[in-house]
Computed example of a mutant assay.
Amino acid sequence: MKTLLLSMITALTLVTSPMALAQDKTLRVGMSGQYFPFTFVEQDQLKGFEVDVMNAIGKELGRDVEYSTAAFSGLFGMLGSGRIDTVANQITITDARKQKYVFTQPYVYDGAQVVVKKGNDDIKGVEDLKGKKVAVNLGSNYEALLKDLPYADEIDIRTYESNIEQDTALGRVDAFVMDRISASQVIKEKPLPLALAGKTFSKIENAYPFPDTEEGRALRDEVDQAITTLRENGTLKKISETWFGSDITTP
């Protein structure tokens, strides 16, 4: 009887241990669904580079992936409240964010880019933003990048939930800033008179953030190992080339 009882306790411990539960847990991922071609909705289906990469990570880990969409500015609130495990929405690694979250290795390498209405010759790059109205997505890292410029107090920075491309094309703002990859895709795919202005002005490395807790760090390590495997077996490169025609997953 003692042997049977001991076996039952051991089995129960194995089933309910944090490691066992972690392996069975669905990976809950937040994204905006409004950032083409990384994450967007088409015919009521969530699609994009981020979706394909995260699905590949889920398959590698043997986990189901559950997606939640919200405005970009609300995604970190969802992460902090425990409603999601991570954010897949081109999240830039910054010193400020590293104070709150733990990150995987980067899976996208890019740079910040100024975009203007086609024909706007007054802005040839970031150095020409003084005295101009410049739009950025609310909650993105681009506001902080602009505020780090030595002439930041001369830039009229406008934060938007969406439609920064349309307002730039209509002349309501003089320019907007986002990553060069997304900006290039917007210009390619949308019927808007927009153009890149100058070179990128800041290196960007995007990764997945997790809460800085024991469980968050363990899950980060799992996802990080999956990224390594997907990079080594060519899956990341294949997904990138499908969406962009080039590999944005390596420096």
Rank of each mutant, 00 (worst) to 15 (best):
Y107L: 13
E154D: 15
T69G: 05
K132C: 07
G139P: 06
G58E: 02
G111D: 15
A71Y: 10
P106T: 05
G62R: 07
A70L: 12
G74P: 00
E161Q: 14
R172E: 13
M178G: 04
A56H: 03
P150I: 11
V115H: 02
R158P: 00
F176M: 09
A96T: 10
D64N: 13
D174L: 02
A70E: 14
P106G: 09
A88T: 03
G74H: 10
Q105E: 13
K100F: 08
E60L: 00
Y109R: 10
V134Y: 09
Q90D: 07
T69A: 04
Y67D: 04
S68K: 14
T104G: 01
E161K: 13
L129S: 02
D110E: 02
T104L: 06
K132R: 15
G74Q: 14
I57A: 07
T69E: 01
N141V: 15
L146M: 10
D64Q: 14
E143M: 12
G82H: 02
Q90M: 12
V87G: 02
E154P: 09
A70N: 14
G74I: 00
D128E: 04
Y142T: 13
V173R: 03
A144F: 04
Q166V: 13
G111R: 13
D85L: 09
F76G: 00
G111E: 15
S140F: 10
A70F: 12
V116C: 09
I157V: 15
V173S: 06
V177M: 08
N89Q: 12
L170Y: 12
D153P: 07
F76L: 12
E60D: 14
L79H: 06
V126D: 01
Q90E: 04
D121N: 13
K100H: 13
E143S: 10
V116Y: 05
D156R: 09
D156N: 15
S140M: 02
Q105S: 14
A88G: 00
V87W: 02
Y142D: 12
A70H: 12
E60N: 13
G171V: 06
V134W: 03
D110C: 04
A169Y: 11
V173E: 09
N163T: 11
I91R: 09
G82N: 03
Y160H: 12
D85K: 06
I157P: 11
D156V: 03
G80K: 12
A88K: 02
E161R: 11
K100C: 00
D128G: 05
V173N: 11
G125M: 10
K117H: 11
D167P: 00
Y142R: 01
T168P: 06
L61C: 03
L129D: 04
A144V: 06
M78F: 07
A144I: 00
L61K: 04
V173C: 07
E161A: 14
F76N: 04
L149M: 13
G171I: 09
P150K: 03
L79M: 08
G125R: 04
D122H: 07
V177L: 09
L138R: 15
K147L: 14
T159D: 03
L61P: 11
F176N: 05
I93N: 01
F103W: 01
V177T: 10
D167E: 14
N120M: 02
G62A: 09
D64A: 12
L149H: 05
K132G: 08
A175Y: 11
I123D: 11
E66K: 14
P150C: 05
N55D: 14
A88P: 03
G82T: 05
Y109M: 07
G131K: 04
G82P: 09
